[in-house]
């Protein structure tokens, strides 16, 4: 017994609960979803008939106009949120890097949005944006700006409006990541630059940015992956509208799965999303490993 707990045996024994856990909650559902994606399977069918259709669901996905627009919408959403959050996060990190008491206080305050569930955030912002009763249109109108049907209901503004909600909530996360990166930078290059008479801007462009590159990459991939999976904010604010202006892929999958109960097709769509995110995670892991070298 004692021998079994040494060396390799111990590894295996201690890994076992985790492996069983992972198998049960991650691998089994994954296989199940892959399997039903090959079937025509409607959950509400009283006879639960499942007909094998091969790759039909995947072929259907790439001909479905809603899927194609929703992929487009998702890409715009991802690009918008990630770019804004990266630049704002970096700016905030540089601004709040000092250890003065005020800055420390500001940093903690800025973390608050992250602690809220996205669904709650969505509902709060939905009322803030409301064209007739909301606070934001109220002040915009006071400034003489025409808000039309309200930010969430105007075709040209809805996407920006939901992107801003995401930015409000997740910029602090990037700020934290960048702050950690900044704190870890070596001092010597800065001292050398200072001696050479480099300006602040030159120091930022030629020292801070290159040294921060690995951190930036990690943050970029992390947010991109999360952004691709967005659902709750959209669900709570626009329901994918107006029209299909904010119907991201994940929201469309939800409609197919939970409104039409067309499980085979929903699983196929989910697997498409899975592949996109898997590629991004692979990149993420590769970059993390390189950093350790």
């Amino acid at each position: 017994m004692r021998r079994a707990l040494r060396g390799e045996g111990a590894y295996l024994l201690m890994l076992l609960p985790l492996l069983v856990f992972v198998a049960a909650i991650a691998i089994y559902p994954l296989l199940f979803s892959f399997r039903i994606s090959l079937f025509k399977y409607r959950l509400t069918d009283p006879n639960q008939v499942q007909t094998f259709v091969g790759l039909d669901n995947y072929l259907r996905a790439f001909q479905d106009p809603i899927v194609l627009t929703s992929i487009q919408v998702t890409l715009i959403y991802v690009a918008g949120t990630v770019l804004l959050e990266m630049s704002l996060g970096l700016a905030l990190a540089l601004l709040l890097a000092s250890e003065a008491r005020l800055m420390r206080g500001a940093r903690s305050l800025l973390l608050l949005p992250m602690a809220l569930p996205p669904l709650v955030v969505g509902l709060v912002w939905k009322s803030l944006y409301n064209a007739d009763f909301g606070v934001i249109p109220y002040y915009l109108k006071a400034l003489g700006i025409d808000v039309g049907r309200g930010p969430l209901a105007e075709l040209n503004w809805a996407m920006l409006a939901v992107i801003l909600i995401d930015v409000w909530q997740w910029t602090p996360l990037l700020m934290i990541i960048f702050l950690a990166g900044l704190k870890g930078l070596p001092l010597e290059p800065y001292e050398a630059a200072f001696a050479d008479g480099a300006t602040r801007w030159q120091r930022f462009v030629h020292i801070t940015l290159p040294l921060l590159k690995p951190t930036l990459l990690v943050a970029l991939l992390l947010r991109t992956m999360q952004s691709f999976k967005v659902f709750d904010v959209i669900y709570a604010t626009t329901g994918g509208g107006p029209g299909s202006a904010t119907t991201v892929l994940n929201f469309h999958i939800y409609t197919v799965g939970m409104t039409f109960f067309d499980m085979g097709y929903a699983a196929a769509l989910a697997n498409v999303l899975l592949v996109i995110i898997a590629i991004l995670s692979a990149l993420y892991i590769i970059i993390l490993e390189r950093q350790q070298l």
Binding site: E8, Y11, L12, L19, A23, I27, Y28, L31, F32, R35, P46, N47, Q48, Q50
Partner: peptide
């Protein structure tokens, strides 16, 4: 050896998964 063991477990899970998946999901109404 560790890899072999992990592979074995994964293959096992895949098999169980596939067998489990082929069972009818719910009795006919």
């Amino acid at each position: 050896n560790l890899w072999k063991f992990l592979n074995l477990i994964i293959v096992g899970v895949v098999l169980v998964g596939l067998i489990g998946c082929t069972a009818p999901v719910a009795p006919a109404a």
